[in-house]
Structure formats: C-alpha cells, structure tokens
Design a protein around this nucleic acid. Structure first.
Lengths: 347, 347
DNA sequence: AGATATAATTGGAACGTTCCAAATATGTCA
DNA sequence: TGACATATTTGGAACGTTCCAATTATATCT
C-alpha cells in the first residue's frame, strides 16, 4: 500500500546534498555545516524518515540491541529485575529482546540462538534451572559479552552479579534467634539451585553459631512460589515438634507461608515468625508487612545492565564478578518490635 | 579478537557450491538436491555458522521481530499477559522486543520509535495512561500492524483485544447482591482509564438492576495496585455507613483491600466481601482464595499474539476487534458458599 | 595573488543476505 | 541420438546504511 520506505538517498536528493552528508547528520557528526544540518533535519522531519538501524548494523557489525532472558517473568522479583534493566538499557539508547524461559533449558537455548541470529550486542541471563556453563560456551567464544545474574553458573567465563545470599540468610536467622526462637525452619526452594544452597548455608551457619542443633525436618522443600509456600506450611503442620519461625527462600514463598498459616488459624507475625528474601514491592504494603532480606531487585537489574553495557563498550572480555550486599528489613511478619538501627526509611 | 564472522560465502566455498545454493538450503527450499543439502548442512555445523537475520531483513524488507510494549510489567496481570505473548511469538519463530512504559507516554513514544527503527514487523501495545489514538497514527500509516490490548483506544485504526469488563463487573456485583449485600463499594483505579469506566458501568448497572440506589461515596479511587487497595480501605473506614462488600478494579487492589481489612481487624471473606478482577495466578492460592472475574491473562496474551501474527501474515490492514469473555470464579474472599455452577475446575 | 591550512562535502565500496534470470545437468521420449 | 522437459545450480544486483579516501569550498597568512 504505502510506497517504498524513504531512505537516506531520498533525503539527500530532497535536501540537495549527498547521502554521505545525510549520514553524517544522522550521526551527529561535528564535521557538517550548521546550515546544511538544519536543512537536512527539516527534510528528515518533512518526509517522515525512519532510520534503518538494521542496515547500519550490517555495515558496522555491531548493534544497539541487548538480549535479556529471565527464568520466570511471572515472579515479581524477576519482573522487577527486568524493569530495572529496561530502564538503563533504554536510556542508553538500546532496545532489548526480553524473553521468558519458564525454567526450560531448551526454550532458553532456542531463544538465545534466535537472539544471536538477530545480532545482539550482549546478553543478560538469569539462567533456567539446570543450565550448565557449557551451554554458554559458543556464545562467549564468539566474543559477545554475557552477564549472568541471580543464579551462579560455576565454571562459565562470564561476568556475574549475585546477591549476598549467605550473609543475608545468616542475618535473618540471627534476628530470629535474637527474638528467642529456637526451632527455626527453612521453607521453599529446590535443592538444585545455587541460590537455595547459599541461603541454606547461611541459615545453617547462623544456627550453629547460636548453638542450636540442626534438624533437617525443619527444612521443607517446595516450589519457590506462593503456592509452594502454602504447601510447605501444610507439610510443616504434620510435624509434631514444628518450627516457631522460618526463613523462606524468597518473598513469594513467604507470602504463601503467611497464607498457609492463616488458613490453619495461625496469625503470621504473632504466632509464627516469617522472614522472606528479596524485598519485592508488595513486601512493604502487605499485612503483616513482610520482614525480609532486601535485595533491591530493580537496583540489581540496573547494575546488571550497567555492567553489560560497560562490557560492550570496553570490547575486551575480562569478566567481573560482583556480589551486591543485602540488608535485613525488619517489618511486622517476624513479630519483632522494630528496632532503630533497622528502621526503614519512608518511601 | 575472533576473526570475522563466517558467512554464506565461507560456507559456499567450503562446501564447493555457490552462495545462492547455500541460501536455498538455509531457506529449506525444495529445489536443492538432497545430497548437496546434506553437504551444506554439515559444513554449516562444522564452521559454527550463525545466520545473520539482519542482513536477510534488509534484503527482504520484512523481519521476524515483533514489539511488545506493556504499561506495567511489575503488575502480575501484565507479566502473565507478556508471558502468554512470549509463548506464541517464540514458537512462531519470532523474537520480541519487550519493553515497559511505566505508564509514561513519553517513554512509550521513545520505545516505539526505537522499535520501529529496529524494524519490527508488528506491535502489541498495552497503552500507558493518557495514550491517544493520534500517537499511533504514523506507525499505523506506515503499514505496520498494531494490536492494542487490555485498554481501549477509541478512534485508533487498530485491532483490539479487550476483556468483557462490563459483563464481568456486572456478574460480580450481581453475585454480591445475591449474597444479600446492599452496600457494595467499588474500589481502586483512576477515572481516566477505559478499563475503569467499563467496570464501573457494569457495577452501576448491576446495582440499578437490583434496585439499589447508587452512592458515590462508595466509589473509592486509588492507584490500581496492592498499595492502592490498602489506602482505599483506610479511606473507606472513615465513612460512617461503610460498604459491606466491594468489587475491586483488579486483583492487585483486591489483595491490598484484604490486607487493609486485616489491619483494621476485619476478616476478609467473613466480615467483608471482596471480589477482584483478572484472576492472576496468586488468586487461587491466596488465603482467603480470591473470588474474582477471570480474564485469563496468559490466554489473552496468546490470543493477542496470534491476532498480530495473523495480521502480519495477511499483509492487509483490516482491523479486527475482539472482546474475550470472562467468568466469575467464586472462591472464599466474598464469603459465598461455593455454588456448583461456578465450581472451579482443578488445575 | 598565491600558497597553505582548514572546513565541508562526496562518490563508491562494503556489510551478508535474497532474488532474479539465466545457465547447466539430468532424464525421457520417439 | 537429438529434442525436449525437468531438476539443480549459479552469478550478479539489490536492500540502506557507514566508512574511506579523495575532492571541493572557504578561510588565513605572507
């Protein structure tokens, strides 16, 4: 219907200059005379010209596109992470392919391949469960910068951005201990993820440090979701000598645990202390407000994106591994009186 | 560092054929002899060739990329919507630029412009508040198919996929009436969105139908989020003759309302009937499980993507407007005994 | 005015693919 | 075997940009 796309040549013709000059204008080169720049720009506006970035990429062998693959976009933690990335990617003049792997390594492989064919300049990956370092080898060898976030991928030669899961979990459990709890559970998560392992280790070390004997019956696996949290509580209730408080794998599980407690008549925060991990936005407004280890997912997403962009611009491929620090935010769900040093700033 | 990209010419050379033949193989053309196809494919595998879709797009003047712009990715409704789209887009061999406008029309404009420069074949937009039909005019005029979802954009010549907000809201209020409620509120949402207007209209008509006088004091605006729901309850409590039940703009508000009720000592589902809208995944597992109007966000995303792909393949630009039907799913939050005809199937 | 420096502009080749028209190989029939 | 049909292969032009080296216009200096 509409006739063929207007191109630099059309602009050049209409403005009475060469296509090279138009190209210089498009790139904001200082070489071009102010007068002609204005002329060209006005013609561009008149003709409704749309820059063809694909053609430019072809010539320049680089693009302004990054790929982001996230294991579960329906989990608010990852959604916020993605939003953080979106912010910095976008304001750096890039666009992102953003895909959801749904924890499927096959899907993840496919989507990464597709992104590669489409010429991404770099990739941020929150790996699906079961991803191996070898899966990323070809991509990395081709010189495309990769940043792995949230879940560690030991052995992969990539930059990594993780949260300090160990320290965070330890702090949370210490807090529960300081409130007088002795039977403290760990709820949610599957054993095969690095995040689970690290948080569990923090939990264990804190218990040991407090001289509390470990009891594996208090560690209850479940899906790392709200539904998983509900299920975990059900399972917990079967145990005669159940926990009086728990650190949950993440906030989603913690919310589920609160739901589950309520449905068996226990008031979360009063009858049972609950601590989450992540600090998603709902944590603050939930009732009871969730005590949680704040990871600042959005900020983490921003940092990941910054790291990737830095890597892309540097060209070199030296990896960098960052661990972002976390802090315990004490709210109502653990039953604690809010202490000053933990006092949360108002939003 | 790594030497220049391997290209069809390299493959052709190594396989002893012409680049044209390699191209035919890549496109799965039936013209090429089985023997040579195998040869070429093996060389492709050996050399680790990566198809350059950008170059192909340039030549063909069409791409396998779609754009998706969503107003708020941190809202699970939209996250699920995006995941639904992701599914069908991906399995159709496309990739998506997926961006978050954060309800900013400026940001939305920028990101759509950027996607256009990058050669999207079509766009799915869940418009930011304040988007006008005119904003999409240039894009549409250029012949790129656009599908608008969730929020209507009157006057825009685009395909649209909406949920039946009016009927859903009406059904929800009817249900509350059938439970004996007379003072029924409408909570959450800003007045300037079409979704709000439609659901409110359903609410009003259902009340009228039941012979209940409208009382604007029962309509409480707030942000369409969990925090907004909490705030709405606070405001509601100031009213001497408060509601005994409410239809909420969406599930996020409904969850917030439940939180807010709890914090003033009211047990949601018992002391106050709450109905949401959307049926996000947490609705089922929340405690109390949320009675809500099910929109099936993921399914809606899938349908939107299918609609767009159909449009892209058809080439023509006749618009199509679909309204997806919704159904009331009665769970615990409205205090109703679960009735058979509404009984929810197990997942 | 002529030489020289500096500012601004420019034509063509190149990026990696697809498409077309044309060429070549292979098979079939009388 | 020659004519014809069919199957397979192939060079080059084209897509819309950027880059380079080279050219032309303008300013500056003696």
């Amino acid at each position: 219907m509409s006739r063929s796309r207007t191109t630099v040549v059309d602009i050049a013709h209409a403005a009475g200059v060469s296509k090279s000059t138009v190209s210089l204008v498009l790139q904001g080169s200082p070489l071009v005379n102010e007068k002609t720049r204005e002329k060209v720009n006005s013609v561009i506006a008149d003709l409704g010209y749309i820059y063809n970035r694909g053609a430019a990429n072809l010539r320049q062998a680089r693009s302004k596109i990054v790929g982001i693959v996230v294991n579960d976009l329906t989990n608010s933690f990852f959604a916020e992470l993605a939003v953080g990335m979106d912010m910095v990617v976008q304001s750096a003049g890039y666009v992102q392919f953003l895909a959801h792997s749904g924890e499927s390594v096959d899907r993840q492989r496919e989507v990464i391949a597709s992104m590669r064919e489409n010429g991404i300049a770099g990739l941020i990956l929150s790996p699906a469960r079961g991803t191996e370092a070898a899966d990323l080898k070809p991509l990395i060898d081709s010189g495309i910068p990769v940043v792995v976030v949230v879940r560690n991928l030991p052995g992969a030669k990539v930059s990594t951005l993780l949260s300090d899961n160990y320290t965070g979990a330890k702090a949370a459990v210490r807090h529960l201990v300081s409130l007088g709890h002795r039977r403290i559970g760990f709820m949610g998560g599957f054993i095969d993820t690095a995040v689970f392992a690290e948080r569990l280790r923090g939990y264990r070390d804190a218990l040991q440090e407090a001289g509390i004997a470990a009891d594996d019956a208090l560690i209850i696996h479940s899906a790392p979701s709200r539904a998983g949290g509900v299920a975990a509580v059900e399972r917990m209730m079967l145990h005669p000598d159940r926990a009086t408080a728990a650190l949950c794998l993440n906030d989603a599980v913690a919310f589920g645990v609160c739901d589950g407690l309520r449905s068996v008549g226990i008031d979360p925060g009063k009858g049972f202390g609950v601590i989450g991990f992540d600090d998603v936005i709902e944590a603050k407004t939930a009732v009871p407000a969730l005590t949680t280890v704040s990871v600042d997912p959005q900020g983490m997403g921003q940092r990941a994106a910054q790291l990737l962009l830095k890597q892309i611009n540097a060209g070199g491929n030296e990896q960098e591994s960052l661990v972002t620090s976390v802090r315990l935010v004490v709210r109502q769900s653990c039953g604690a009186p809010v202490r000053n040093n933990y006092l949360e700033e108002m939003a």
